[in-house]
Design a protein around this nucleic acid. Structure first.
Lengths: 338, 338
DNA sequence: CTGAAAGCGCTTACAG
DNA sequence: CTGAAAGCGCTTACAG
């Protein structure tokens, strides 16, 4: 391989001068700079990443810990990953993707071996076993998803409480007085998926305030089970006039279920989901929804992470917990109760 | 950070002995080995990846080049990525995920800087601009998807020709004589997505052999456009009794379309798709389908790549082009024509 | 404005 | 069975 020594020789300068000419970290005479640049182009020189990492203690790589959990809706994950990956590249970083089931072990491995300058965690649980490891790590970390204890880490998440209130309030204003809320599977709750109960508790509280009957249930994340569950719910609560979905699989299944029952939204049933616009487009979901903004959350997490990585001042700044405000995208699926 | 020097000091041996004790590359007395292992545990030593890479010219990282193209169905991509990622980890490798739009540039960057020991390319096109770069690279490469020129690379793909023949032949045997084939969008063809015409051409040829009328069209990869296209097709060819889908979005849209038209499979229309079983489960697609085996293809690509990376003999072995034989998974959506 | 040298943390011939 | 030393390819104080 061609090294900086080769470049230096070709340009007739020392290795240090070649290095400085490339980094711009000290003033170099224009002629020398030109000779070095020419040599680089001619020889096709690219710095060896491992050597540079060893010398600078910077890898220019960000670790992305994603878990593909059986009971969560995999396609939704992809959008977070894209937001993280695209933003990282814009800022000059590559992504080390880790999908190991044992996230704690994986995190320790990439952190201890100094493969990464920082870490983004997806699928963060209430009492996530990866957090103590990340806090003790020399690299900064950013989370997408709210854990019970946010100390020592930057946290980004949708404001699920506000999302729950917003769903209920929106229906309330339209005149609805009995609603059904379908959340993610109970497994997700048991595993500590806080967003499930954050939205649900807030929705229940808001319903209580408004005198609304709200039937809150956990639904499967797979077809066709979730479709059957939706049928059962509509059978069991015939007087409910609105449906709230904090469950992508349920949203994807609902069109077929409504078709089968001869229901139209909003004429027969008002519907609000919670998913990304991209998701809505791919699956042509005709329901108004709270935007979950996965790309934006991934982007925010990386931005903050890189800020901490690159500047000592930011490194020691207090950590942030930042909520993305939910936004209701109107796709015309809500109206007055039938 | 704790280095092998710290370990050596704690164990009372030289750094080289500590290194050998850990690698097992020469015989070490049991007591010394024990002392070294104890020191490692006590100090929490993990080798620095950059330093090791510099010394060994091995990074234990595999590059994964994936492109999220507007006109392809993103969720399908995730399954290839999982197959690659899981297999890599099993074999001791991490994944550098690159999703840059300019794949050629990205490939040159990670290859030239020696960030990876090998590369897996997804979304390979007929005349893929990344291939010449990969052939010239010092690292071996494996492709998922068949390009026009396979020289110098290991290639893995579903046998789309056989898949096309199989779809037609299956319908023929059931008595069908007029079929519709919906492929991916024409953009995909123009970009060089060979699998589209490989399946289509083979299907057309088989139809010709069997005296079947086959209407082959390109369909959108997005909702609701693809739904409308399906409606139009069924309107235009009322005497067609079978539908073949080489288009995930079409498969996802079809249940709703059939519902809207009051059609049932296979009573009114026989249907065969081409997608993964995982995909079928997530979206509850009730159609028989040719298994596209993304996890298996990702797995095969990584296995072969690692074989080349790790052994000089395999390194120089002739390259392989390996097709996964299509398998028809019967979900009961085909029968005699109405 | 430039060069010689040390050092990052490993591995691995070379010597004993 | 073990140690001292060289070297992987960079960067960056230290000197001039």
């Amino acid at each position: 391989m061609v090294t900086i020594g080769d470049v230096a020789r070709a340009a007739g300068v020392s290795r240090s001068t070649a290095s400085y000419a490339l980094s711009g970290k000290r003033t170099i005479s224009p002629e020398v700079r030109q000779r070095v640049n020419d040599a680089v182009r001619q020889l096709g020189y690219t710095p060896n990443a491992g050597a540079r990492a060893l010398a600078t203690s910077q890898t220019m790589v960000i670790g992305l810990l994603a878990q593909f959990l059986e009971d969560e809706f995999a396609p939704a994950m992809l959008q977070y990953m894209q937001g993280v990956s695209d933003t990282a590249r814009e800022l000059g970083y590559d992504i080390l993707l880790v999908t190991e089931a044992d996230g704690a072990r994986a995190l320790r491995r990439i952190s201890d071996s100094r493969m990464v300058d920082g870490v983004v965690l997806l699928n963060v649980a209430q009492d996530d076993v990866r957090l103590p490891i990340l806090r003790a790590a020399p690299q900064p970390g950013a989370l997408v998803g709210l854990p019970g204890d946010c100390s020592g880490l930057d946290v980004f998440d949708l404001d699920f409480e506000e999302a729950g209130r917003m769903m209920v309030e929106h229906m309330y204003r339209l005149g609805h007085r009995e609603l059904i809320l379908v959340s993610q599977p109970e497994h997700v709750v048991e595993r500590g998926g806080a967003y499930v109960w954050r939205l649900q508790d807030a929705a229940l509280e808001q319903a209580r305030l408004r005198g609304i009957r709200l039937h809150a249930v956990f639904g499967e994340s797979r077809q066709p089970a979730i479709g059957q569950t939706l049928h059962n719910l509509l059978d069991t609560h015939p007087s409910a006039t609105g449906l709230l979905l904090n469950n992508e699989a349920a949203a994807a299944a609902l069109p077929t279920v409504m078709h089968a029952r001869g229901l139209a939204a909003p004429a027969d049933l008002s519907v609000i989901g919670r998913y990304s616009d991209e998701f809505a487009r791919i699956f042509s979901l005709p329901f108004s929804s709270i935007e979950s903004a996965p790309d934006r959350l991934g982007r925010m997490a990386v931005r903050q992470l890189v800020r901490r990585i690159e500047s000592p001042e930011h490194r020691t700044e207090p950590h942030v917990v930042r909520y993305v405000s939910p936004e209701l995208i109107d796709r015309g699926s809500t109206g007055e109760p039938r």
